[in-house]
Design a protein around this nucleic acid. Sequence first.
DNA 1: CAGTATCCAGATCGATACTG
DNA 2: CAGTATCGATCTGGATACTG
Lengths: 134, 134
Amino acid sequence: MATATVMRESIELCDTLTEEEDTLTREIITRVADKWSLWVMHVLVTAEGPLRFSRVHDEVEGISQKSLTKALRQLERDGMVTRTMFAEVPPRVEYAITPIGIEMMEHVEPLWLWVAKSVGRFQQARAEFDGRGK
Amino acid sequence: MATATVMRESIELCDTLTEEEDTLTREIITRVADKWSLWVMHVLVTAEGPLRFSRVHDEVEGISQKSLTKALRQLERDGMVTRTMFAEVPPRVEYAITPIGIEMMEHVEPLWLWVAKSVGRFQQARAEFDGRGK
DNA sequence: CAGTATCCAGATCGATACTG
DNA sequence: CAGTATCGATCTGGATACTG
């Protein structure tokens, strides 16, 4: 019943979106699953303050410079992080999470939490499936 | 403060996950952003009953046979849909959502809903960013 | 009907090298 | 320091053709 309510609400809302809005919605959702975007935002949230490029690069273990740059640009473009450049030598650039970025994380975390809590059930499902397939 | 609570809870939980569990968690989350998986599940939820392969193929507009097969296999493997084969000629195969699949959708929809409702703010952020970049 | 098999174009991502 | 540019391996996904 709670299900039906949520479903109906989302179906109605989705019907009111233009094609452009629908595309953008999907793109934003994509950030959630993106290998790095969520991790980058997580680092910026827990830092509770701006971080330099190299600090983020340290914290997000395994990311390449190229991928980090790309992730940060996307997040900046979508208003989830800010990028502040200081006219110094050597150059200093600081990244920080925005209010909408925090909102995003607040909405993502419950889902992430549920999946993490359910991981045992997914493992069992896979074990059964892989077993059936011999 | 609600933020901090959720964050802390998720950080603690994530620390208890083995590497294998963490990988699986990420894979499941990936389904959320996958172009087709969520759409397929949505179709199966709203159908309120099993659907044949060709019916799903009709409902999920634009998907190729190959991609649909792959999406259904993944969802089946992760326990979110069931696949029932009938020994008939011509062959009949029916797909249905599972309880855990419904749970998944229940946890995804609020996020989707928030993004859809916030789409105007994301559009504005992009407009500003693209404007600044000349 | 419900797939599988094959080919192929485009996107993605890491590694590496270079620059203001 | 904070990138950009480039190259190559890998992955993805559609189109097409074939099968039990």
